[in-house]
Amino acid sequence: MTIEAKGLSKKLKNFQLDNLSFTIPSGYICGLIGQNGAGKTTLLHLLLGLYQVDEGELLIDGMDYAGEEKRIHNEIGTVLTEELFDPSLTLMQNGNDYGRYYDAYDKKAMESYLELFGLEKSKKFGRLSKGEKLKCQFAFALSHDAKLLILDEPTGNFDPEFREQFFKILKEFIADGSRSVVLATHLTEDLDRMADYLIFLEKGKQVFAGDIEKFRDSYRMISGEAYKIRLLQKEKIIRMEENAYGAKALTAHSRLNRYDRELVVAYPTIEEFMYFYGRRKEE
């Protein structure tokens, strides 16, 4: 399932998402990153059809929400930080109640995922912990043959053991190449090892959108003596920080760049990139 956005803009009361353009191919795990208030949740709400696009175009597998809302929603599984289910109903009751709207909802699949995640199907949703609620939503998202999973910061509430299971399930989910995942998260080390595509937002604007290899090819983390780093082209240095032992800098990279041998040149992790890029305007 592909997602195409062209010139996507959305104006809210105190915030604006401005001119986003990206294409997430089928079979990819897309990491959506940015500081708090960058616009991640707004973008997810647009992808989920909860918000309507003000300008630009958004196509999910070639369909737009104006004409094909039902078909698109039938293909999407969602895990949001809010509690989507009815707290007074049991997990299976919730699954069956909402599952009746989906063409391919499978009651047995829901039961088996609940069991796999260590959840009791007859327990009321309201009595679960935060992490268990997210697991329940995840079980439901997997139970109706979704082609696209949209996940808003679920992993922060998972225990380490379940996180491994979670990522294993995501890998299996996209294995056939026809499904995609959009995962908004602050736990960037997970994206470093899992994501195929990255969208980085800052204050409603798109800083980067492309596959992870392109991201890695575009930037470098340079460590070493500060004066040697300063010898690099000034316009390429996004942000440099010095301490008693040396300096570290995030730089834009191209194949023509050459670096002093005594400098340590590495791919930036997503976390390093976010940290240095976010502070680029500071003195």
């Binding site: 059809g49 809302e69 039902k70 039938n74 999407i76 949001l80 289910f85 989906y102």
Partner: peptide, 14 residues
């Protein structure tokens, strides 16, 4: 409606 209902497959008319 609850937020989940807006995520369920339903057309605007439905």
């Amino acid at each position: 409606l609850d937020k989940m209902m807006y995520l369920c497959p339903m057309s605007r008319e439905e």
